[in-house]
Design a protein around this nucleic acid. Structure first.
Length: 226
DNA sequence: GCGACAG
DNA sequence: ATCTTGTCGC
């Protein structure tokens, strides 16, 4: 799986912000609503001692959530963590990781925001546009916007409003548990993004794709640190 | 200026 | 994100 857009990322924050604004215009809607058969979850894990970090991607069947394949990669951190610029930090390792993926999955689920972002271009959107693939932002906490607490039952949701417009939804993926924050990454409707996230959440708050990717890359890192 | 702030 | 055990609640 090769990226359709190459990035060097030797940018100042101002330039990075401009790039985000420019690329957010390339986020598009799907022409057809094609059937989703595979969902790929991706995540990154950091080393506390060294400046190394790791990426993991797991492809699962949908809606069965059977693990079909997984890949990992190692890299060196070259960009600080700054809220709003997470993609410039994590995309380099994720790129190495995704290059090892055979065929493109139907959808990529990312641990972070899609358009629920200051410049409508969070990590999920960045990956989606870079690889020209449908992507979903599934974050554990909010970056921007406000929302009313959704109902307590699994499946309940409420809109995330930012600057007067809806940029996503707080989605309850499990009864009586903190919601996750879903937003469109690329080439997908919010409705489909919510459906996929909800169906992918079989038993835990975090939907299987990103949950499995998190476990995979965490084990990969710990294994590497021995 | 102050507070907020994905991972 | 990462370092960590038990503990409270469904």
């Amino acid at each position: 799986m090769k990226p359709e857009i190459r990035h060097s990322f030797n940018l100042s924050f101002r330039e990075a912000a401009e790039l985000q604004k420019k690329l957010s215009a390339k986020i598009s809607m799907p022409r057809k609503t094609k059937t989703v058969g595979t969902v790929c979850g991706v995540d990154v894990s950091y080393s506390l001692k060294t400046s190394l970090f790791f990426a993991g991607a797991v492809v699962l069947s949908f809606p069965g959530m059977e693990i079909l394949s997984s890949v990992t990669a190692k890299g060196t951190v070259s960009f600080p963590y700054v809220p709003g610029f997470l993609s410039f930090r994590e995309i380099p390792v994720l790129r190495k990781c995704l290059l090892r993926l055979g065929r493109k999955p139907d959808v990529i689920m990312v641990d972070g925001q899609g358009i629920a972002h200051p410049r409508k271009f969070g990590l999920a959107s960045h990956i989606g546009v870079t690889y020209n693939i449908p992507s979903i932002g599934c974050a554990k906490s909010l970056l921007v916007g406000e929302f009313n607490e959704p109902g307590t039952k699994k499946g309940s949701k409420s809109p995330i409003i930012y600057k007067g417009e809806q940029v996503g939804c707080a989605l309850r993926t499990k009864d009586n548990v903190k919601p996750v924050f879903i937003s469109v990454g690329n080439l997908i409707s919010l409705r489909d993004a919510l459906n996929i996230a909800l169906i992918s959440a079989k038993r835990y708050r975090i939907p299987e794709p990103t949950r499995q990717a998190h476990m995979l890359v965490n084990n990969f890192r710990k294994n590497h640190e021995k």
